[in-house]
Design a protein around this nucleic acid. Structure first.
Ligand SMILES: [Mn+2]
Ligand SMILES: [Mn+2]
Ligand SMILES: [Zn+2]
Ligand SMILES: [Zn+2]
Lengths: 167, 167
DNA sequence: ACGTTTTTGCAACACCGTTGCAACTACGGC
DNA sequence: GCCGTAGTTGCAACGGTGTTGCAAAAACGT
C-alpha cells in the first residue's frame, strides 16, 4: 500500500480508520486530490479530475465520500456552493475562510478581534449564538499584483430583470 | 386599487415601478406576504401560503418575482437556503442577519466593532476584501425564556456515516 | 484463505429551479 | 373608456444536482 503523499490525506486516513472506515484505492485517490488542491472543488469537478488522472470512480462515490469527510469535520464547504476544501487549521479553534475571487484559492484565518466583535453582537441582540457563518471574498495578495490570474466562475445565478427589455 | 398594507410592500411597489415594472394582483399578494412575514420563507413555502390565502399564482411566478426582488436588493437570501426575507435596514450601511434557531425569526443588526474587526482581517491577510457573508444562528431573547416555541426545520442534510452500521 | 462489514457502481429517482412560448394584463396615451 | 405596447403569467418541458436501493466487489481482522 502506498503512503499518503500529503498531510491531509494522512490525517484523513487516520480519522477514517478510527471511525471504522476502510481505505480503498478510490478513496485514497480522492484524499490525495483533496489534499493537494489549493482551490475548493465540487463533487463534479473532483470526479472529472479523478477520471483525468486515470482513477476509475463513480460520481456517486465521490458524493458519498465527500459527505463522510464533511461529517468527520475534515472538509469545509464553501458557503453557497457545493465546493469543499480540506480543513487546514487543525484544531477546534474558531476560524473562517477567505477566498480569492480571482484565482479561487482559499485561506483560513483566525481573528481575535472578530471573536470579540461577535460576542459584542451576542450582548447587543440578546441572542444566544449557537453558530455562525462567515466567509470573505476578495483578491489575494498574489492576484492583486499580477492581473495574469486565471479567472474563476462568475457570481451566483438568478438575477431576473424587471422591465422586459432585459433580454 | 388597494393600498399596500405594510411598509415593505409600499417600498417594493415604488422600487418596482421605478425600474419599469408593473403591479399585478399576484405580485401585490406576494409583496404583502413577504412584508408581513417575520420568518424567512422559500419560494415553495411562499407559494403554498399564497394559495392558502386564496391567491391564484403559479410557482414559477413566485420564483421570478423573488429573483427580481433579490436583484433590486429588496430581499435578502438566508445563507445556505432558498428562504428570503425583506431587507429591513433601509440603506446601504453594512448589516447582517441573525436567525433564531427555535422560532425562525430573523433580525438584522449592525456592529461597528465587527466592521473594525473585518478591516483588521483585511490588513492581516493582505486580501482586498470585496464582499463577505456573515450570518448568525441562535436563540432569540423570546425563545430563550419560553421553550414553548414552535420548532423549526432541522439542520442541513447530507451527513453520510462511516462504518455501515449507521443504517 | 475466509467471513464479515464496508464500499462501490449502476440505474432509478426526487427535487429544485429555469426556460420557451403563447395568452394575458397593466398602464400610458388618446 | 379604448388601444397599443411592453411587462407578466401559466404551462409544460427541461437540465442539473444530489440521493437511494440493491447486488457485486473490495477491505480487513482473524
Ligand atoms: Mn478548518
Ligand atoms: Mn437588509
Ligand atoms: Zn488569487
Ligand atoms: Zn425565537
Amino acid at each position: 500500500m502506498e503512503e499518503p503523499s500529503n498531510e491531509f490525506a494522512l490525517r484523513a486516513e487516520q480519522a477514517l480508520r478510527r471511525s471504522g472506515g476502510r481505505i480503498t484505492r478510490r478513496r485514497r485517490a480522492l484524499l490525495e486530490l483533496l489534499g493537494s488542491q489549493r482551490t475548493p472543488l465540487g463533487p463534479r469537478q473532483l470526479h472529472r479530475e479523478l477520471l483525468r488522472r486515470g482513477a476509475r470512480i463513480d460520481l456517486v462515490s465521490v458524493y458519498r465520500n465527500v459527505s463522510a469527510l464533511l461529517a468527520l469535520g475534515l472538509l469545509h464547504r464553501v458557503v453557497g456552493s457545493s465546493a469543499v476544501r480540506p480543513c487546514r487549521e487543525a484544531r477546534a479553534r474558531c476560524h473562517h475562510a477567505i477566498v480569492c475571487s480571482a484565482c479561487g484559492r482559499a485561506r483560513e484565518f483566525h481573528s481575535r478581534a472578530l471573536e470579540r466583535a461577535l460576542s459584542e453582537v451576542r450582548r447587543a441582540t440578546g441572542f444566544r449564538v449557537e453558530e455562525h457563518v462567515l466567509e470573505l471574498r476578495g483578491r489575494c495578495p498574489r492576484c492583486r499584483r499580477s492581473r495574469l490570474c486565471r479567472r474563476r466562475q462568475s457570481r451566483s445565478g438568478g438575477a431576473r430583470s424587471i422591465g422586459g427589455s432585459g433580454r
